[in-house]
Design a protein around this nucleic acid. Structure first.
Lengths: 219, 219
DNA sequence: GACGTAAGCTTACGTCGTAAACAAGAGTGG
DNA sequence: CCACTCTTGTTTACGACGTAAGCTTACGTC
């Protein structure tokens, strides 16, 4: 077309890609589909992005950039770290296609670097040694990403947990998995919620890190 | 062929698929390639497996089945749990293609169920309430899988960590990421190892869980 | 008004998962 | 011994996919 609406650009391509992933998951994010969404042929996209991997890297960094970084308050490092973990969880579950991508590729986009640097800043400000700060953010992020991924992989949303538990009970009927059967029964009957909030694990880790910091042989 | 060597079977297909994934990663695991490996046309495989997803589910469960489950000793629940986490880490890093798959799909194979049931058994035997036991294994596994995935995603093996750190220093040269730059410098100069062992996080979590169990208001 | 350059288009190749129809051999009942 | 069905594997084909190569079109600059 001579005067198609807006001219393409790397930014526009990535924005459309993000929207596409959000609406239909990774499967619907194909170069042809993306082109169609922008009123353009698939091959035209290659004028603005190197290849599909560049698109994926780009939209992942856009997602990371959505994570809210609170002001770093040295007196309150624990709540800052907790906030950071919860914010990451919220953002990543808002883009359910992102975590698997995020965790299966090396990511060094600017938002990711900023995010890590910020975290290190909090920990250093709270008196952690370089070594312990490094271990700390690695442990935190391993948990946050792992927890998020596991939440997304779970058969259903937390709200339907009880229902699913009873639906899956036939799997456990054989008596081969006695503990799971009992746990599932309790969840099905509403005796306990079933889904731990991410805050449970965050606090567990943060409390442990604090103790380590306070007993560290002065780095 | 009239008398081709061994007859196909679900088991043989899955074994070949596992071998293929181990040798060339997920990319080389295609139905055509798998068929070729078994001296058979791709479509023949569909007599023994429903589709490719069934193949993936099958080989993931075979991997999980490799995880060593030590005898559950109530007096030593922490070391049993630690052992379990380390064993999972070892197995999953031996099959680097597995964690991304494992974490991006719902898995209810027999080995996985057995693995979870075993874990619940340890925790219950150690006096955890059902609720806390549930939270505990979820937290543990979130961390173990997350940590494993992150290790695999890291640009290089731990041994080359220092080398990579210096290679990536140009990314940090702009002064935009001061904390990362400093941390990277220390790693590059060998001032601290850089890669925390998974045991660090495991102990952190296990110690925290123990404290929670001991202060729990009797479930 | 000629021309280089950038942006988008067309065509094509090799790959993938798998649906559908077919062929060849193994049992099995009459 | 024959005819039948059932099992196992093959052939062919379809509609995706990412992207290489070459073409067309329009515009900025002199």
């Amino acid at each position: 077309m001579p005067s198609s609406r807006a001219p393409l650009s790397t930014r526009r391509v990535l924005q459309a890609a993000l929207a596409l992933a959000d609406s239909g998951g990774t499967d619907s994010l194909t170069m042809r589909h993306l082109g169609r969404e922008l009123g353009v042929e698939a091959m035209s996209l290659y004028r603005h992005v190197a290849n599909k991997d560049a698109v994926l890297d780009g939209i992942i960094d856009m997602v990371i950039d959505e994570i809210d970084l609170p002001s770093a308050d040295p007196g309150n490092w624990k709540s800052a770290m907790r906030h950071r973990g919860e914010a990451a969880y919220r953002v990543l579950t808002r883009h359910p296609w992102a975590p698997p991508l995020l965790m299966s590729r090396t990511n060094t986009g600017p938002a990711m670097l900023r995010y890590i640097d910020f975290t290190l800043g909090i920990l250093r400000g709270a008196g952690f040694s370089w070594k312990l700060a490094d271990y700390a953010w690695n442990t935190m992020d391993s948990f946050v990403y792992g927890y998020t991924l596991r939440t997304l992989t779970f058969p259903v949303a937390p709200a339907d947990y009880a229902e699913t538990a009873s639906a899956h009970q036939h799997l456990l009927a054989g008596g081969e998995y006695p503990h799971m059967a009992e746990l599932t029964r309790q969840v099905a009957e509403g005796d306990h919620p079933g889904d731990p909030d991410i805050t449970f694990g965050l606090n567990l880790i943060l409390d442990g890190l604090e103790r380590l910091r306070d007993t560290e042989p002065a780095a």
